[in-house]
Design a protein around this nucleic acid. Structure first.
Lengths: 238, 238
DNA sequence: AGAAAAAACTAGCGAGCGTTCGTTTTTTAT
DNA sequence: ATAAAAAACGAACGCTCGCTAGTTTTTTCT
């Protein structure tokens, strides 16, 4: 699978995403007509990500957002009741989307090596398609309330759990070495995150998304298959 | 080397660091007596990291800082001329410190495997000793001005360059496989950063600093030594 | 075309922000 | 003990913030 193939398979246009966002928050959005609501959500979303990813969500004022989106202050508040709710809406939609796409990306693949490969590629490609969104979610998670912050952590643990389970599967099949699968999953996750957090670095080096995905797959498999060479040192699997 | 040994070797007490901070910003700090200045810098630093790492630097008001540090608003401004300068002071001191400790941690070690191991361990241990500082520097780098932001990027590239050069050295010696050393260094860096960015995760799983460092070393060496198994696919070393 | 409903707008509120400056307190030196 | 120097203080200033209410504009439906 390449990024081009992934893009064709998944429908991740701003319109699609905002329609999903609308469905998830229909009760708190005052605008009735779907078409209008989706169009304005697109404007709000694009503006929020653009401004926030440059100066931070806290530093973005509602006046900034009004200017960047082309909507008046009053109109903005037809879509959320407070700045904090806007933040939560974006985060919640991102979590749902990630979960769904990731599940779809690995379903039906049983071979551990192929399944781990698919999970990694799907995550890298998804974060490429929604780079601004992923960056935003990562950097602004700390500004959420306690309750929502907990959900963000659970979401991170979910992704890691997917990787960890695949490794366990491979170990049970005798294909992967008996290394600490939780730590291994955490390391793979860290590598996945670097793609959307340090975009400037890879852009400067002209590393494309396919090459990046290849490399992470290679590194993960190399480690899981060989188990860290001679000194796997009897690490407990658990 | 273990974390305990590292801590004994390096003097990274709040007092030491604030003394260094004072030396680097003597001209802009109004307080004359070193003892007083260092004491108050310690208070300011501890309070800034505590409050900022919880709610973000932007969201921390000067009144928050005054309350948390025990110093009056006026007294705070004897140590910096603006909130932004406080941010820059902390970042600059962290960069200098990281560079110095990292260099000291690998000097005199020539064997590539041992040198890569030392670089990784030193970085993990340093970020453990100054966890709050590292977390702060990472999360707040985007709120710097253009000029300082550039320095932060350079600092990240410097660390990666250290890793990358060690890999090149190992490749020249025929010990490491001919993989893309820049990408490999970036992946190792990503793993190093996860230690101080996702502390809650590792604390919850009772993973200690020594085990973490071990694991990263193992994963990095496994990959560099074996080269990703059969499909290293003729990656250019550059 | 005209009335009702929906959407969008604007000016302004009170609160809290970063910063300053005249004053008071503490320390140092005679 | 007292005067000079250093350090600490905190009320107040000008501004910008998130948010709202009252009104106007646009769309929908008969």
């Amino acid at each position: 699978m390449t990024f081009a193939q992934f893009s064709r398979r998944e429908s991740l246009s701003p319109g699609d995403i905002c329609r999903e966002m609308l469905e998830g928050h229909r009760e708190s959005i005052k605008t009735k007509k779907e078409h209008t609501a989706v169009r304005n959500l697109e404007l709000i979303l694009a503006a929020t990500l653009a401004v926030s990813n440059q100066k931070g969500f806290q530093a973005m004022s509602m006046r900034d957002l009004s200017l960047a989106s082309g909507l008046s202050m009053g109109a903005l508040y037809d879509y959320f009741s407070s700045k904090e709710e806007l933040l939560e809406m974006i985060q919640a939609t991102g979590r749902r989307l990630t979960r769904r796409v990731l599940e779809r990306g690995i379903e039906g693949i049983d071979d551990p090596v192929a399944r781990l490969t698919a999970a990694i590629r799907t995550h890298v490609y998804l974060s490429e398609a929604l780079q601004a969104w992923f960056f935003f979610s990562y950097m602004e998670a700390r500004h959420l309330g306690e309750e929502e912050k907990e959900k963000a952590k659970q979401s991170e643990l979910y992704t890691e759990g997917v990787l960890s389970e695949i490794i366990a599967q491979g170990q049970a099949a005798g294909v992967f070495a008996p290394l600490d699968r939780h730590l291994a999953a955490a390391m793979i996750k860290a590598m996945l995150q670097d793609w959307y957090l340090k975009r400037w670095k890879y852009a400067g080096r002209r590393v494309g998304v396919d090459r990046y995905a290849d490399f992470v797959v290679q590194m993960a498999l190399s480690f899981c298959l060989s188990g860290g060479g001679a000194d796997a040192s009897g690490e407990i699997t658990l």
